[in-house]
Design a protein around this nucleic acid. Structure first.
Length: 536
RNA sequence: GGGGCCGUAUUCUAGCGGUCGAAGAUCCGGGCUUUGGGAGCCCGUCGUCGUUGGUUCGAAUCCAACCGGCCUCGCCA
């Protein structure tokens, strides 16, 4: 019987089999470490984890791994049936809300006030700035009719792909004088993009969740300083709090936000060897203040255009990146502050001793809540085994598990197990709060250290396009010389991208250690060092 | 947007022109028994075979289009 089951589970594992030969790999690697002694020899000969476990190794098939993680840790449900739109499940939402809260707090500490704008933008607003219109034209959802008879709207409404045009049309009314500047607002909202490329939960959707901050200043210099602050906030949040290593690039001229003077964007590197863009900040200068009439009166009575910046951390994508970067073969891993449940208590029941165990669990729960102010949960379900609970909470990335059984009650101790690193310890009840405090304090720091591989170690300096291709094929980022990231460098950039299969991400914003004598494509002297990588 | 693969119950799979009034496992509900790393037995429930149209005496099965999913290549948070 369990033989049959082993077989079935192996099959369950190839949820991905339909897509590629890679789907077959998993069963081979599937852990047989659990004491399931039936070999199930006839059909396939491999034991497998239950369907509730991830059946591929992250390092072997990242794409399948991510799909399974999203499904099995119940982060999103993709069965809604509209391309690019998914249900965000409670476990993900609880973390995402915490991420929002941290980000919003930081933005407010840096002088931003919250605001909520309408979701629809009239066509006429949207079309005021021509570069921006061109950039977004292909990916806007339009609301064109309404009512029972599908009456046509007099003016089509865009489902906002981003809010510049909505905000700045109001900013022109809200901002009157230099006394109003700097004028800094943010909103947490959803935006919509009719994405052509294939969609992925969290990473690329047609509806995504983000924060956008839009700031107006009296001088270009003030605006530039805001861009620096935006980058600093990104590091504080994305790297320090969410434990995702990132680096900022100035995007090439041909790859900037439509309507910006410059775009600066953080890239993270995922297990697949692809970079993904995380927060970006744009120096818009006066490109929008002209068309939208964002003006202010100076101290000496002159009428001036404001200088604008906008900053867009996409929380849903950052969440996806965090899940992807931190997760391991057991499932999700979360920083301490972001875990919906930080400590789970699993009672180990035995006939006739449940009451004593339950009582001890309740006591420990109360103590942890009181002394640590942590999110604690007692998993007292009596219809599944303790082992299954262990696996379930590990899949969900709960940082600490406390096991309490009859033996522990007797000895006045508990078992404390940390998710990362996976470590089991017997702790006397009297020392529990102290032990947990220690874990809580260092947990996130440990994760960060674990993942803060410096980009430097993943970057390969290359003098020839062929070398760069080799580096990129080996899941690395290539650093090459390019004559320019202005439009004058575009044709060389095309050659590099075609020759390497990567995309030019731009020039590092911080200090550049690599120096080049000539452009890899045309040989022109005094090139700028740029980074080339495959991207999501 | 291009190319490739795919769509049967919550999920995974079988069926590949008539024997399908669609099979098995899982899930779910009930009962017993269990719980220190993914338990077992018994009973029960669950199906617009993705949708629409076509071919055929007859379609889950063949064809087309659409919708969705996965993989892969050129443009973005």
């Amino acid at each position: 019987m369990s033989q049959k089951k082993g077989t079935k589970k192996a099959e369950g594992g190839d949820a991905g089999a339909k897509k590629a030969p890679a789907g077959q790999k998993p069963s081979k690697g599937a852990k047989a470490d659990v004491k399931r002694e039936k070999p199930a020899p006839a059909e396939g000969g491999q034991k497998a984890k239950p369907m509730s476990a991830i059946t591929v190794k992250k390092s072997e098939d990242f794409s399948d791994y991510f799909t399974q993680l999203v499904e099995k840790a119940e982060l999103a449900d993709i069965r809604y049936g509209v391309k690019g739109f998914v249900c965000y499940m409670p476990w993900a939402v609880m973390t995402i809300k915490k991420m929002y809260a941290k980000y919003e707090q930081l933005l407010e500490a840096n002088g931003h006030l919250p605001l909520i704008m309408p979701t629809v933008i009239p066509k006429s607003f949207f079309e005021k700035e021509s570069d921006h219109v061109k950039g977004f034209a292909p990916e806007v959802f339009w609301v064109t009719e309404a009512g029972g008879n599908h009456e046509k709207l007099e003016e089509p409404l865009a489902l906002r792909p981003t809010s510049e045009t909505a905000l700045y049309s109001m900013y022109s009314m809200w901002i009157r004088s230099y006394q109003d500047l700097p004028f800094k607002r943010y909103q947490s909202c959803q935006v919509f993009r009719y994405e052509g490329r294939s969609t992925r939960p969290f990473f690329r959707a047609r509806e995504f969740h983000w924060i956008e901050a839009h700031d107006v200043f009296a001088t270009l210099e003030d605006a530039r300083n805001q861009v620096l602050q935006d980058m600093d906030m990104s590091y504080k949040m994305v790297r320090d709090e969410f434990c995702i290593p990132i680096i900022f690039f100035q995007r090439p001229e041909w790859d900037k936000f439509a309507g910006a003077i410059h775009t600066y964007a953080a890239d993270a590197l995922l297990e697949s060897g692809k970079v993904i863009q995380l927060p970006s900040t744009h120096l818009l200068g006066q490109n929008f203040s002209g068309p939208f009439n964002v003006r202010y009166v100076t101290k000496d009575g002159k009428d001036e255009l404001g200088y604008i910046t906008c900053y867009g951390p996409a929380i849903s994508r950052i969440y996806g990146a965090m899940v992807a970067v931190l997760g391991d073969d057991q499932g999700l891993v979360l920083p301490w502050d972001l875990a919906p449940v930080q400590v789970v208590i699993v009672p180990i029941y035995f006939k006739g001793q449940a009451e004593a165990v339950d009582k001890a669990c309740k006591e420990v729960e109360a103590e942890v809540k009181a002394k640590l102010d942590a999110a604690v949960k007692v998993d007292d379900r009596d219809y599944i085994t303790a082992g299954e609970k262990f696996n379930e909470w590990e899949m969900r990335g709960v940082p600490v598990r406390i096991e309490i059984g009859p033996k522990d009650v007797e000895k006045g101790q508990v078992v404390v197990v940390t998710r990362v690193p996976r470590k089991k310890e017997f702790v006397p009840r009297a020392g529990l709060a102290g032990a947990l405090e220690g874990i809580a304090k260092s947990y996130t720091q440990n994760l960060r250290d674990l993942h803060l591989l410096k980009f430097d170690s993943l970057v390969q300096r290359c003098d020839y396009i062929e070398d760069a291709k080799e580096a990129i094929d080996g899941n690395k980022i290539a650093c090459v010389g390019l004559c320019s990231i202005d439009m004058s460098g575009y044709s060389c950039a095309e050659k590099v991208e075609k020759g390497t299969g990567g995309v030019i991400r731009g020039r590092r914003v911080d200090d550049e250690p690599n120096k080049f004598d000539r452009c890899v494509a045309c040989g022109a002297p005094n090139p700028v060092a740029v980074y080339v990588a495959r991207s999501y």
